[in-house]
Design a protein around this nucleic acid. Structure first.
Lengths: 220, 220
DNA sequence: ATCCGCCTCCGCCGCGCGGGGGAGAACCCG
DNA sequence: CGGGTTCTCCCCCGCGCGGCGGAGGCGGAT
């Protein structure tokens, strides 16, 4: 628990937030803010260089968001730091992605200073008890619905075809898709045909089913 | 943090477990086990009487399980205690229900003594930071996926129509549905038309979308 | 005994859909 | 510069689909 101080890196694009976090944490015994970053990309490089114990990572940041930065850090570094994702709203959809990306915890920006300090200390000690593998399972299950398990065909879809599939999955007809995309009906038909071919679907209904089953789109 | 000791009630049908928990917690400064219960129903009444700060609630118990007991306690008592649900397996499906029921945390039975103590202290202090309302949202969303959120039209479907909708959502044509159900094509068409009417869908694709979005069928 | 909901089936009709083929323009990359 | 990919658009054709109205049997509820 004691001994070397906990080395922390802050990643947030807002200076005020970084300052606030630094003031709070620097006042604590055994916690030391060793670096800051203002973008996701910078966070990755700073962490790679400074090798902190804990990273407080904002979700919304320029260039690379906090989620992808988290993924990159955990994927590329050996013995990676514990990453706490900071969000503004508790119902932020990013929370799920954060958990899936391997974040050790998440924190609301309106959290009290004590909570912040407590969070840093807890994650620095490894897996917190209030945060056992079960939560990760929960998050993993949630995540398993979306990003993973994407059959090969998803990657083969062009941007336009992906747009079309999303609209198909919204229940639009070819003509409506054309209108929504501001293209001719024939074009929409072409894209739909391409989607059907790539998904191996016989008709638009099967394509929509494939979209759901693959996690390309999610209910709710 | 200090001052009056944390008053704890244990609810578990196995004597050994209760004893183990009591031994661990009674050895701690500032924690006092004030009562025990062996069933869910007993847990509710004991808690109502003793008004503890924290309840350690086993999931599997006679009469009323820990989940329902948790719900009842939280629903009927003002200023209810913080309830930690105790499970044997981390992938226990009850975990989700526990969170949804409003449990303040969950704990594995194989957790170390220190974790147990830490858990009690943390939840006694109120909402732990590693466990904000967002987790509850996560759990609520999980729970909302399957059992609840079924729009009114789901209940209005006849058995046959439900069968047809499932086959529609499997990507079958009217003729294939007829074959699968061993009825005439005209009959299948009639049921499909009924499904479209009740779901408010314009075509079979929208009906399948509605089936997914309502949780009538689930991806995976 | 009567009504109502469910399941079963029949015709007709219009249209959106999917399959087939071809074609031009923009772009990137080797 | 040529080749590949993507996006755009056109033709024709067949057919499954969805909308319409009608009908008979069967069971439960009143």
């Amino acid at each position: 628990m004691s001994g070397a101080p906990v080395r922390v890196v802050l990643a947030d694009d807002e200076r005020m937030v970084r300052t606030a976090l630094r003031v709070i944490l620097d006042a604590e015994e055994g916690i030391e803010v060793v670096g800051e970053a203002t973008t996701g990309a910078e966070a990755v490089s700073v962490v790679r260089e400074l090798r902190p114990d804990v990273v407080l990572m904002d979700v919304r940041m320029p260039e690379i968001d906090g989620i992808r930065a988290t993924e990159q850090i955990l994927a590329t570094l050996e013995d990676p730091p514990r990453i706490v994702v900071v969000t503004t709203f508790e119902n932020d959809a990013y929370v799920y992605d954060a958990l899936h990306a391997g974040a050790a915890g998440f924190l609301l920006k309106r959290a009290a200073a004590e909570e912040l300090v407590q969070a840093v200390r807890l994650v620095a000690c490894g897996d917190s008890l209030l945060y056992p593998a079960a939560v990760r399972t929960l998050a993993a299950e949630h995540a398993a619905r979306q990003p993973a398990m994407a059959p090969a065909w998803v990657a083969r879809l062009t941007d336009r075809e992906a747009d079309v599939l999303r609209l198909m999955a919204a229940g639009l007809t070819n003509a409506e898709i054309a209108g929504r995309l501001s293209v001719g009906p024939a074009t929409a038909k072409t894209h739909v045909a391409a989607v059907l071919a790539k998904t191996g679907a016989r008709d638009r209904t099967q394509a929509v089913i494939a979209a759901y089953e693959s996690g390309f789109i999610t209910p709710g």
